[in-house]
Structures are given as C-alpha cells and as structure tokens.
Design a protein around this nucleic acid. Structure first.
Length: 749
RNA sequence: GACCGCUUAGCUCAGUUGGCUAGAGCAUUUCAUUGACAUUGAAAAGGUCAGUGGUUCAAGUCCACUAGCGGUCACCA
C-alpha cells in the first residue's frame, strides 16, 4: 500500500461494483424492499454542486442494501422542457437565428439532437461520484413508454372531467412565448408611478395607464358616498371614445388612490374576475408577441410594446389635459423566472387541470403522515400551499416536451389560428378558414396553432379524421395536432409510477408491483410545490396509492461564505473538479458531515481538504493494521468471548455504541450527525487512542483490530464508499474476512 | 401582506426528547515526531449560546416579545 490514498483508481472500484450486479436488486417477495427514484437531473447539463447531494440517497441506498433489503435506486434524466429550450434558443441567437426561423418539427429535432449529444454528461458524472444506481433500469422523460403513460393519464383526466380548456388570465411571457403557472413567476418590487386620470365624473388611479385602451368598466365601492349615485351610469373612455359602465364592486377599497378603479378584464387577474362577475366585455389589446393588437387599438398604437405604449398613452393623456397627477409608487410586479422580463397577464386559451379534488386527497395523505415530510417544518408549507391552490395551467407554448395528444379536425374548427412558414420561408399567420387551399404548406411549415376554447378535438388522429363530414377524398392531413406541450411537471409528476412500469391497462410490471410505493423521495425543498406536490397528487389519483412514504428535503449547497452559488458571482463549485483533485469520498463527506437536516451547507475548500485528510487517515490506519499483521503471522482472528485487556474492551464498547447510534441516525435521516460521530470515533477513539495503545502489545490485538477495522469500514461505507471498498479489497484475505465486497456485506449489529 | 427559518469560539457550523466543566473542522499559540499517516500527534487559548422577560429543581434547548439577517408564498388598482 502507498503512503497516501490516491483517488485515481475510484473508477475501477465503481466498475467492480457495477459488474458484480450489486446495483441491481432481486425481487424477493419474502422481504420488504427499499426503493428510491432518483430526481432526474437535466439531460444535457453537467451536474452542479447541488446534484452532488444525491449522496444522501446513496447513503440510504447503500445502508439498506447492506441490511439485506432488496434495494433499488432507479436513475433517469429529464428533458427539462422550457429549461432546455431556453438554453437552446441562446445557442440559436449566437448563430443569429431564433425559434421563429424553424417549423415546429424541425426545431424539435434540432433540440433533440442537441440533447442526445450531451445526454451522457450527467450520467458519467453520477457514476464518478460513486452513486450506486441501477443503470439497467435507466429512464429518460421522453422515453416512448413514459410518453404513452403520460398521454394515457391525460386522457383519463379528460374522461374524468378533470381537464378543461378556458380562456382565462394567465401569466404570459411574450419573450419566451409561453404561458406559465404562478410558481414560475417571481415577484419583484418595481419603482413606478401611480397615474391619476380624469374620466369626467370621476378620477381613477392606475399603475398601468396603457391598458386603458382595453378598459371595459370603472369600478367603485358600492358604499362609497362619493360615487354611489354613479353606479349604473356610463362614461366615455378617454382617447378611445367607447362607452363603458361604472360598476359597484365590494373589493374596491375607497382608501386607495381615488377609490375608483379602471377595469381591464383581459390584462389583470382581479379585473378578469370582476368582468366574469358583472358580465363585462373583454378587450385584449396585446397580442401574444407582446405588441399592441391591430384589431382593437388606434392605428398610431399598433405594434407598440407595453412600455412604449405606456409612454405614448401617457403623452396623449397629458396633451388631452386629463392626466391630473403622477405620483411615485412602488409595487410588486410578476417577472418571468427564465428570462427575467415582466410577465404580461393576458387572456389566452389554455389547458387546465381542475386541482381541488386532487389537492384534497394530497392534503389528507400528508396530514395523516401517509407521506411523511421531513424535516417536518415543510409539512406546514405544503399544507398551506395546497389549501389555496388554484387550477393548474398545464399547456406551454414551447416545442420541447410532450406534445398534447389531441387532434383538431380543421373542417370543424375554421377559427383555428395557425402560424407557419410558407414555401418561401415567410412567417404567415392566419385563420384556417382563410387558408383552406394551403393545407400542405400549413401542415409542413406549422409552427403553432391557437384553437378557440370551444374547438372540437379528438384523442387520436384517426378519430379526428373520421369526424370530418365536410372533407371528401383526400382526408389525410386535414387534421392538426395541438402544438402546445405539457408543463414539464405534468410529466415529471408521474415519474415514480411511470419509471417503475405502471401501465394504463392495469397490466403493471413486476417492478411496479414490488417497489411501488417507493420508500423515500429525496430532493431539495425548492421544488416541494413544483414537483413533490404534483407527484403526490398524480400518484394518488392515478395509482390510488401514495408514490413514496417519505419526502425527504435535503439541504442547499452554498459557497464557503454561505453565499448562494451563481455563475455571475463566480463562486460556483464544480463537483467534478473537486472529485478530480481530492476524490469523490472527500466531497461526499464534506457535503454531509455536521449538516443539520434541511439546513444550508457551506461548502468550502477547507472543509473538503479536512475530509480528504480523513479519507487518508482511514487508508493509513489500514496500512498500520496490515503492518501489524505481518508482525504476527500466527495470530488468530476470532474475537474471544471475554476481553481481558481494558483498551480492547473500551474500543469494542465504543464500537458497539457507534453501531447503534449510526444505525439509528441513518434511520432518522440524521446523516450529518452520523457522519460526525463516525469521524470522531474513527480518528480519535480508534486511531489516536486505541492504535497508539497497541504499539507495545502482543498478538492478542489482532482479532480486535480486525473486528473494529472491518466494522468501521462497513459503517463508513455508505458515506465514503471508495476508500472503504479499496481498503477492504486490500485487507479482506489477509484478515480472513469471507465477504467478497463491502458494498454487499452485512450491516453490523 | 401571510408564513417559515436563522442569530452558539476569529471563520463555517453541530448540539436528538430541557440534565454533569457548551462541541467539531479550519485558523491561532506552544511542544513533539526520521517507524501507519506532516494529509501526523499532544496540549493551550478562544463563547455572559442576539437581547429582554417568563416556565422549571434545572434553559443554548420550552414560551412571549424585541432587533438584525435570510427564505417561501401571494391576482390588489
């Protein structure tokens, strides 16, 4: 053995494990299985420091494997819908192109190529970190089998009346060109103004003067003496000249501004609700590209973006002499979490999931701890969020993802708006009824379609074609599939049962029957609502069972100073370069030791170096044992029933304590405590005290050395698998230990 | 606006259900060591556990309030 441990051989150990079949469990119905589905990292990106925290899962998995439980840790990667498309569009931009230059199919193929080219990056890095994943069961979120299950569940939800289309206010990013759910909107404080506009009989105060063009009412509080008598009358909308009613609405606060609110149903969620309640008109002034809509605004405003339109409208209000004052005002404005631009609330036809009944069942299973959320403080967050949850918009106007499996018969839906690239490469947009003679071109160059909410649709192309009373002869093709894709979380929310082989026809796989519900789901708390909540809702709805018994929220990795890592700050730590320099074990231990459950981890060079030293300590203690062994060639290895030496007795007692505490701490997800205790035990009690004490003794130490060292290696193995396995392979025959591999050895009791 | 978390040694953090002189790593000081390991060992110094009040035989730990920091959620013009 060399003087110091060199991590360069770690990949040999990894293939030793992999080829031994240790990662692949055998289904044994007499035993309780242990299973974890890996949260799939993005398929096309290198891992970041946060991903290295999958080590927490590896600890549980290796521990349960050693306990003898049939243990499955199922790996996979995520196509990561908008994330990936956003990255790919940046590449396009660098080439002077954009998504508008491609038809839908071509763009999809380009992104798919890009992803396929990079798909093994994350996989290889996970292997390098020593994760004992069962690669024979690897999945991808765009696997055909998964797609089919996602589609079948969507159909089921439609049949059960849980899916509907509606033209509601949604969070729309005009730059990314898609709607988002509330969770994907970040609220930022914006310093702006409150504009006071004179409407004649009353004055309104607004933060968005430009939306005046789309106003269809003015609302006042019905108990406000200033305006009471105006309710029911109409006034003339400035600049536009339209007559709009004054309505009474309880939610209007008389104290704010002037106590009168302009109502823009198509561009404000509150106003939308008011309009539904009072039966107001809807006037959408912006198109989905963010520009003022030519159908409704005055010629001079056509094509302006919101901020340009604001400038223009304010100027016109000023020159009309009806802008009474402008005061500074700061308020919260929603921004796109991807591109950072402000979100435009806008009415758009979208697909929604009725969430109430699903959420209620999720609340029930979490309240009753059928799904135990750990650390428990997240349980309250979960329940609070679930209580006020709103219907889930599941459609996204991007191409990279699961294309919604419905087909429109064009004859039945003349008002479908299609955008396509024609044979001259021009972007054309128009209603189907005006494009009937251009079917081939539309079908070939299709980019997006926008079906009105009352559009008829079918769940297969054949069905859609059949219902085509108007088409004769060449039926093929007068049908278009929805161009929207599912929210990524709609697909990944189904990950646990889908990866295990749940089948829509009830013919589930053996894996599903045996390993589902899974034992633990471990992920970072930042996707508790995005992902964990969706998995619980979907899992209970589809399979009638919880998808996992425990939802374990792991920590967030910060830099050495406790700052959030970000590329712009330049303080990111690349896990693989640490692995190169110090070995995977040092990184793994540094990420776990002394970290309280759910708290942040400050990952510093110092900490990693300290753990590398610990790994080396294990190496050298083993070297010492080896050298001692050579001194006593005739030694026996069996531990006597009674130890006569007090040092021997002491270390064995301490070992027994550490076996108990490590076992219980891992069971309680206290990995930080377990690692800390092991560190103290091994370095201080075993090396500094016991090994020193053996230096002038006889061969009676041998069985104690063997027992304590091998047991320690086992206890440490889930945390630092490489060095422990390497050492074990060096020592096992010399110490007459009959277990082949540490990874499949028996957990100490 | 609602909710949550944090505040312990110079730095980064542990401290399980309240219970013996409050711990670790790194940094600092002193000493030792060419025989497992300088990626070492022995020892020292360093904290009125954010503040105030309360419960208790006993509080870093439980309760209330205050201050500072961080986070999550949220359709208010």
């Amino acid at each position: 053995m060399d003087k110091t441990y060199t991590p360069q051989n770690e990949d040999k150990i990894y293939s030793l494990w992999e080829t031994s079949g240790a990662f692949t469990p055998k289904i044994d119905k007499t035993k309780e299985p242990f299973s974890i589905i890996l949260p799939p990292p993005n398929a096309n990106e290198p891992l970041h420091a946060g991903h290295a925290l999958y080590v927490v899962e590896d600890i549980m998995v290796r521990y349960h494997r050693m306990l003898g439980d049939p243990t499955l840790w199922l790996p996979g990667t995520d196509h990561a819908g908008i994330e990936t498309q956003f990255v790919y569009e940046k590449h396009l931009k660098a080439e002077g192109k954009s998504r508008f230059d491609f038809d839908r199919d071509t763009l999809y193929k380009l992104i798919a190529e890009y992803v396929n080219k990079n798909r093994d990056i994350a996989v290889n890095q996970m292997k390098r970190l020593g994760f004992s994943l069962d690669w024979t069961r690897e999945r991808f979120t765009l696997d055909e089998a998964h797609n089919q299950r996602v589609f079948a569940v969507f159909k089921k939800m439609c049949d059960d009346g849980l899916v509907y289309r509606d033209e509601k206010i949604v969070n729309y990013c005009t730059f990314c060109g898609t709607a988002f759910s509330n969770l994907e909107v970040v609220h930022k404080t914006v310093n702006s103004h409150l504009w006071y506009i004179n409407y004649g009989p009353l004055e309104v105060a607004t933060t968005r003067p430009e939306t005046l063009l789309g106003d269809t009412a003015v609302a006042v509080n019905p108990s406000d003496p200033r305006y009471q008598k105006l309710i029911g009358t109409t006034i003339t909308l400035p600049l536009i000249g339209r007559q709009i009613p004054i309505i009474g609405e309880e939610s209007v606060s008389p104290e704010f501004g002037t106590g009168a609110v302009k109502v823009t149903p198509s561009h404000s969620p509150e106003d939308y609700d008011m309009a539904k309640k009072h039966g107001l008109e809807f006037v959408r002034i912006f198109d989905y590209d963010g520009k003022a809509n030519s159908n409704v605004v005055d010629e001079k405003y056509i094509g302006l973006f919101p901020n340009q339109l604001r400038e223009s409208v304010v100027k016109d209000l000023e020159s009309a002499g009806i802008l009474s004052k402008t005061v500074d005002y700061s308020h919260e404005v929603g921004h796109c979490y991807k591109c950072g631009r402000s979100i435009e609330p806008i009415t758009a036809p979208q697909w929604f999931v009725k969430i109430r009944s699903l959420a209620d069942k999720a609340i029930e299973v979490v309240k009753k701890d059928k799904v135990k959320i750990f650390p428990s403080r997240f349980k309250k967050d979960f329940l609070t969020w679930m209580k006020d949850i709103r219907d889930w918009p599941i459609s996204r106007q991007i191409v990279w993802g699961h294309r919604i499996p419905v087909w429109y018969n064009l004859d039945e839906n003349p008002d479908i708006l299609v955008s396509y690239i024609d044979k001259n490469g021009q972007n054309i947009s128009g209603y189907w009824k005006n494009l009937k003679d251009k079917y081939q071109e539309v079908a070939l160059g299709l980019q997006t379609l926008l079906a009105p909410i009352n559009a008829k649709y079918y769940f297969s192309k054949e069905e859609a074609l059949k219902k085509s009373p108007l088409s004769k002869g060449d039926l093929e093709g007068l049908v278009l599939q929805e161009t929207d894709t599912f929210d990524t979380w709609f697909s990944s929310g189904q990950w646990p049962y889908s990866t295990l082989g749940w089948e829509p026809d009830g013919n589930h796989s053996e894996d599903f029957k045996y390993f589902y519900p899974t034992s633990v789901l471990d992920t970072m708390w930042d996707i508790l609502f995005f992902w964990v909540a969706r998995m619980i809702m979907m899992g209970v709805y589809v399979t009638g069972e919880i998808p996992f018994k425990v939802a374990h929220m792991h920590s967030r990795v910060l830099d050495g100073k406790g700052q959030k890592m970000s590329k712009s700050k330049g303080n990111t730590i690349n896990p693989l370069s640490i692995v190169e320099a110090h070995g995977a074990d040092a990184l793994r231990m540094a990420l776990v030791i002394g970290v309280a459950p759910g708290s942040d981890i400050a990952l510093s060079e110092d900490k990693i170096r300290a753990q590398r030293n610990f790994v080396n300590k294990i190496w050298n203690a083993s070297r010492f044992v080896l050298m001692t062994l050579e001194k006593y060639p005739d030694a026996v290895f069996d531990l006597p029933k009674n130890l006569t030496n007090s040092s021997d007795q002491e270390i064995v007692d301490k070992l027994n304590k550490i076996i108990t505490s490590t076992t219980s701490n891992i069971d309680k997800y206290k990995f930080g405590q377990a690692a800390d205790d092991l560190y103290q035990f091994f370095w201080h009690d075993f090396c500094d005290v016991y090994l020193e004490s053996t230096k002038n003794r006889d061969e009676k130490i041998i069985p104690v050395l063997k027992h304590v060292l091998i047991t320690s290696l086992k206890l440490l193995h889930p945390f630092i698998p490489y060095v422990t396995e390497t050492v074990y392979q060096e020592l096992k025959s010399k110490l007459k230990s009959n277990e082949e591999l540490l990874i499949t050895s028996t957990w100490p009791r």
